[in-house]
């Protein structure tokens, strides 16, 4: 029982981070109909920025803010300068650009900050005694903090998208770009903003996961998160914001329970399992569980 609660708590923590990355992927997909392979690497870059600031004695909260700003700028710039021109050339060139960014950004991180693992302080107290006991299981403040931060970030996203004028513009531009443009919306700007916001969500995810990742802060930190995040987004439905959250949490919990209780998969086949679920969902229901089908004109 104790172990189960601790595993659930771990799973929930990872699940929230996956949900954030999945959400970022969905926001990008709604703007550009593509999966941003570079999403997690962009987040890794801004996480490095935040870590670098904390080593200069700047408070982690301020560093978080700075990382979000840098993330927004990078995301928006990539959309405007690389992705949009590539989109005109078709789906394959767009994918190639994103794959190229995936490698390039990761390499840039290594060039600037080196290959070694950095330990990064989290946003929340992470001492050995910082826990609450639930049925004799320890739930660390660190985990509770990640949950709270993720819930707040998700809530803000949903509020912005569903309740504000900006969100209305985003939804309009995603649903029907032509009509949106005709009613006076600058669709291009909305997409750029979408990419920027996705990168902000990613930055938050990066800063939440880096202190607790088994890879600490290193070049390998975010690749698994990308795998789980994209699996979560596919499972939930690539154009469903709610689906991304459900997908992320489900994968996080499933990962920790399966690793704990299914011997064959053990510690090695983590990502394979998540991806196998993703492939099955794709084959059975290509639009994901909550996604809607996009009609294609013949």
């Amino acid at each position: 029982m104790t172990q189960l609660i601790e595993r659930l708590s771990d799973g929930l923590t990872n699940g929230f981070v996956y949900a954030l990355i999945a959400l970022a992927l969905v926001v990008v997909f709604k703007a550009s109909s593509t999966v941003n392979f570079a999403q997690a690497e962009m987040a890794l870059f801004t996480t490095y920025v935040a870590w670098w600031m904390t080593t200069r004695g700047i408070s982690i909260w301020l560093a978080l803010l700075a990382a979000c700003v840098v993330g927004f700028i990078i995301g928006a710039a990539i959309e405007r300068t690389l992705v949009r021109p590539a989109e005109k050339r078709g789906e394959m060139p767009t994918l190639l650009i994103l794959v190229a960014l995936f490698t390039a950004i990761n390499a840039i991180d290594g060039l600037i900050w080196g290959l070694e693992y950095h330990s990064m302080d989290g946003l929340f107290p992470a001492g050995l005694d910082d826990y609450v006991s639930v049925a004799s299981a320890r739930i660390y403040y660190e985990d509770i903090g990640v949950w709270a931060a993720a819930i707040i970030a998700l809530a803000v996203c949903f509020m912005v998208i569903n309740k504000t004028r900006l969100g209305l513009l985003m939804r309009a531009a995603a649903d029907n770009p032509a009509s949106a443009a005709l009613s006076g919306i600058n669709v291009g700007k909305v997409y750029t903003f979408g990419w920027g916001s996705a990168a902000v969500i990613g930055s938050i995810a990066g800063i939440l996961i880096a202190p607790i990742s088994p890879h600490q802060l290193s070049m390998a930190t975010m690749f698994p998160v990308l795998i789980y995040g994209s699996a979560a987004a596919i499972i939930g439905g690539l154009n469903s914001l709610g689906g991304a959250v459900v997908g992320g949490l489900t994968l996080g919990l499933a990962e920790s329970l399966i690793t704990g209780y299914v011997g064959f998969i053990g510690p090695q086949l983590h990502q394979t399992t998540a991806l196998a679920v993703m492939v099955i969902v794709l084959l059975v229901r290509p639009t994901g569980i909550f996604g809607s089908r996009r009609l294609e004109r013949v």
Partner: peptide
């Protein structure tokens, strides 16, 4: 030798465009 991931990425982007 760490630059080569970056070079691959940049070359790919340049060639695509």
């Amino acid at each position: 030798g760490q630059a080569y991931g970056l070079v691959f990425g940049v070359v790919l982007i340049v060639v695509v465009f």
